[in-house]
């Protein structure tokens, strides 16, 4: 029982971070009707901004976190939208998807060139003390990661549903033309979406990197798992991304413990195939029609 609980809670903590990344896919999809294939690299890069703050600028860890967060929002939110999304989007979604793939490669190779191919240690935000939960030694860090990730998702959902700005963002996502007629500043709402995505990616980076270690290639796995989590949960629903992320985190750990460790990497793909066959809109998603 204690082993199950240990593995389950650990899976939830990792899954919650996957969910943060998956929500980014959902937000960008809603804002620009495109898939950001550099999303994994968006999670890899902020950790390096923090390391630059600590090792090059001599900042303390917490100040470096703020520095990394701010730089991430500017680079991965503002500049991403202004320099890549805005000029390329008029040429079509596919062109933008290819551009994000290229951006992912650029970010990965830049991190490698600038900081080296070796993994780097990354300090944790919380102490690694254990607490006893029904006989399972659960890491306080895991629990706090879980609480923070879930808290962010709840706050984001409340923001989108209960505030005027949030509802304007949703209106923009659903139909930008009508939203504009109704007086919504569509460009501003889209910008907000990209800034939120960058903030979520930075947060996910700060939570996951102490375990993953800071490495240029981290985005490959994270991006793929989060993409699958978003599809499994429902690409057009934030709560879907949350469910998808948690589900993959928990199932991955349970499979590795009770079924097979060797094929654990295949699990998200198996899940993806099953969902596409059984419920193509995802567990929490809604069907979308599109005129062609």
């Amino acid at each position: 029982m204690s082993q199950f609980l240990q593995v389950f809670l650990s899976g939830l903590a990792t899954g919650a971070v996957y969910a943060l990344v998956a929500i980014g896919f959902t937000l960008v999809w809603q804002a620009a009707q495109t898939v950001n294939f550099a999303q994994g690299e968006f999670v890899m890069v902020p950790a390096f901004f923090v390391l630059i703050g600590m090792h090059w600028l001599g900042l303390s860890f917490w100040v470096a976190l703020l520095f990394g967060f701010a730089v991430s929002i500017v680079v991965l939110g503002l500049l991403f939208k202004k320099l890549i999304v805005e000029p390329i989007l008029p040429h079509g979604g596919i062109t933008l998807i290819i551009a994000t793939m290229a951006l992912g490669i650029l970010l990965k190779e830049s991190a490698k060139e600038f900081y080296g191919a070796e993994a780097q240690p990354f300090p944790a935000m919380f102490p690694g003390d254990q607490i006893d939960v029904f006989g399972a030694a659960v890491s306080l860090r895991d629990l706090l990661n879980l609480v923070i990730s879930l808290g962010i998702v709840i706050l984001l959902t409340l923001f989108l549903n209960r505030t005027r700005t949030g509802r304007c963002m949703q209106a923009t996502a659903q139909n930008p033309g009508v939203a504009e007629i109704l007086g919504v500043d569509v460009k501003r709402m889209v910008l907000y979406t990209f800034l939120i995505n960058a903030a979520l990616a930075a947060l996910a980076s700060f939570l996951i990197t102490p375990v993953y270690l800071a490495k240029f290639s981290n985005g490959e796995t994270l991006g793929l798992i989060a993409f699958i989590a978003a599809i499994v949960g429902g690409f057009n629903q934030i709560r879907g991304a949350l469910v998808g992320g948690l589900l993959i985190g928990v199932l991955d750990n349970l499979t590795a413990t009770y079924v097979t460790a060797q094929y654990r990497a295949a699990l998200p793909l198996v899940l993806l195939i099953v969902i596409i066959l059984v419920r193509p809109q995802g567990i929490m998603g809604t069907s979308e029609g599109r005129a062609v």
Partner: peptide, 17 residues
């Protein structure tokens, strides 16, 4: 057994424990 470049060892350690 774990895979090369594996990042999450929660299940492996829980099994050993």
């Amino acid at each position: 057994a774990s895979e090369q470049a594996q990042t999450d060892y929660a299940a492996d350690v829980a099994k050993i424990k």
